[in-house]
Design a protein around this nucleic acid. Sequence first.
DNA 1: AATGAATGAGGTTTCATTCAT
DNA 2: TATGAATGAAACCTCATTCAT
Lengths: 208, 208, 208, 208
Amino acid sequence: MTMPSDRTAPEQSRTRYNRDEKVIAAAVAVMSDKGYAATSVQEVADRVGVLKGSLYHYFSSKEELLFRILEESHEQVREIRTAVAQLDLPPLESLLEYVTRSSTWYLENRDRANIFFTEMKNLSGDRLVAANRWGREFERGVSDYVSAGQLDRTIRTDLDQRLVTRFILGAVNNVRFWPSRPSGKQFGNEEIVSALVLLIRDAISAHR
Amino acid sequence: MTMPSDRTAPEQSRTRYNRDEKVIAAAVAVMSDKGYAATSVQEVADRVGVLKGSLYHYFSSKEELLFRILEESHEQVREIRTAVAQLDLPPLESLLEYVTRSSTWYLENRDRANIFFTEMKNLSGDRLVAANRWGREFERGVSDYVSAGQLDRTIRTDLDQRLVTRFILGAVNNVRFWPSRPSGKQFGNEEIVSALVLLIRDAISAHR
Amino acid sequence: MTMPSDRTAPEQSRTRYNRDEKVIAAAVAVMSDKGYAATSVQEVADRVGVLKGSLYHYFSSKEELLFRILEESHEQVREIRTAVAQLDLPPLESLLEYVTRSSTWYLENRDRANIFFTEMKNLSGDRLVAANRWGREFERGVSDYVSAGQLDRTIRTDLDQRLVTRFILGAVNNVRFWPSRPSGKQFGNEEIVSALVLLIRDAISAHR
Amino acid sequence: MTMPSDRTAPEQSRTRYNRDEKVIAAAVAVMSDKGYAATSVQEVADRVGVLKGSLYHYFSSKEELLFRILEESHEQVREIRTAVAQLDLPPLESLLEYVTRSSTWYLENRDRANIFFTEMKNLSGDRLVAANRWGREFERGVSDYVSAGQLDRTIRTDLDQRLVTRFILGAVNNVRFWPSRPSGKQFGNEEIVSALVLLIRDAISAHR
DNA sequence: AATGAATGAGGTTTCATTCAT
DNA sequence: TATGAATGAAACCTCATTCAT
């Protein structure tokens, strides 16, 4: 809450920041694995290497910890959307670029993605309201492109925009379950992403 | 820990059977909403209208209750697969028929589907092993059709069978999030399913 | 409570009696093994082969079941004492005869003896009062012989009668832990008992 | 299930150590009185003056609490055995010295002795295995002396060593029931112990 | 910042007992 | 007699959170 004084700021804030991130990283790992409700603060503390009580210097509650994780994920995906928007591509290309980049992020951050897509329901009050807003934003990011793509006839118009949007969202949200390569004999992230893009393009484009 | 044995004698009593089902229905509703871990036995009991302790006449543990729910869902989806197999259609048609029927089931049993796709991790021991086996079975159901479809050239061969399979599974598993029609102004289940099938067909078929 | 009518009496009472005994036998086995408090009515019912609720036709409560077991044991040991008294032997010989017979009973009824010596504390109210009376009676059975033996100089008089009595009681109560012969290579009951008697005699007799 | 590891660092804090001991002392008192199974964690907590949940800072389970009590008792009796062994007395004298010291310990720690001799059966898994090992150790402590005493002809050889051993163990284990002196009109511990030793010596020695 | 003891509410589960059938 | 569903209290244990140190 209080700003660090000028003199000690760089050192302190780095320390603080690192510790915050360490806690978040630990929480992400555990919560992705067992789910928010089944995760105890104790387990997170164990992983960080501090005592349970000490965590409360960084987070006011378990729910806030979840919120911060979701917020970070949301922020990073939003940046992807912003970056894609600045490329000024035609709708379908924008959409596919967005699919490419966000899928890549999900694959590189499987644990965070898991939490993002399954644990929102554990928030309450204002935090839940904020998270739901993110969800709608996220959906709009895709649905706007779909609408535009139908207008310029690059995306099929025989299906309602909402259905096409859901289809894309579902396919993208699920990449995190695609086979990874723990031992090198599976697929790389780029391979997975280009397959996904190919399939989505063929599913939704107007030309066939 | 212990595997559930046969609980209800077949004829034993309509009453008993109904009560079992009532408990399962209550648990499905609550667990779909809040998740297994965040659901208390108390809440399920309240919904059934009995005392907490009374539930243990029907289920030996909360985990067994979850297992029974998953088992029922598995059973019903498996029946769909069996029925489709008996139609003796060519691979791609079989696959799409299977997509049609299972998607419909997911839409008509959204709560059960939610639990099926997100709460397996809460099982342990033998029950977890059994559930994982279902998961693999389920995947095989799709992946066998994909392989056959690639062999007879009706399904695209430019992508590895495992990637195509995952894409389909992801799309199907996610129908449960598609916009339903609580107030009549959304889509009907058939409409959703035919859109899904159309999109999947265009994504994976060899002809374009 | 109600006396059976004349006609059906013999049959009925035998049945009833047998069932009562079956229940008691089951309870003895389980309670000796796990202790009264750790024994559930369910386990007793399982062993008898009836449902839990049915046991309450025979016993009004778990505590009464325990009481009946203790009462039976007490009764049988009391009969031993009476029989010995009727032999009209001199004090030391009476005492050793009593040790012989009661030790034998403990060895032949190890489970009942276990319960008799360890589970009385689980009774309450009137039943506890009655059981404590048995305990004192039991002790008197030995202590009277010791006193008489000290009077006629067959039992050592250098030790207070109460100490000698406790010593004997302790030795006798503990025979149930002496090595039995599950596979024939241990000792028989008679062998154990005569060793015990020999040792006690040498410990307490006045002549040495 | 899991074996208890080292709980308390040696120096760690007087406070912690004391609290552990306070909890153990409370548990000893209650469990000796009512038995392990009939003792609720609540009762122990009440006696310590903390909330039920707080006890779990010191012990991971009720069973572990029992284990710790038994372990402490075992440790103290083992030290007695070690001390006696270092006196380098002839077998019979060693045995009687051991009887003297351990009986004294039982009399001074009646509650702990009660638990030690009756509640082991409530352990399970590894803890039960460990406790059974103690039991065998304990028995060996006596039986080795008996064997040696028979070899050097100070202990009677007309009875099998195992029977003599059991007799001694039974007599010693039972001192805890001998009449104590709550109001001064009973016997002192030394008086009880010397009577016991006298009786055992006369029972088992070869000279008579 | 960190500790770790303590809290207190709530979790799952067990169980003796009752009772309508 | 027998059943077995239901009860309701109480059992053991967990856990997010607080706070004095």
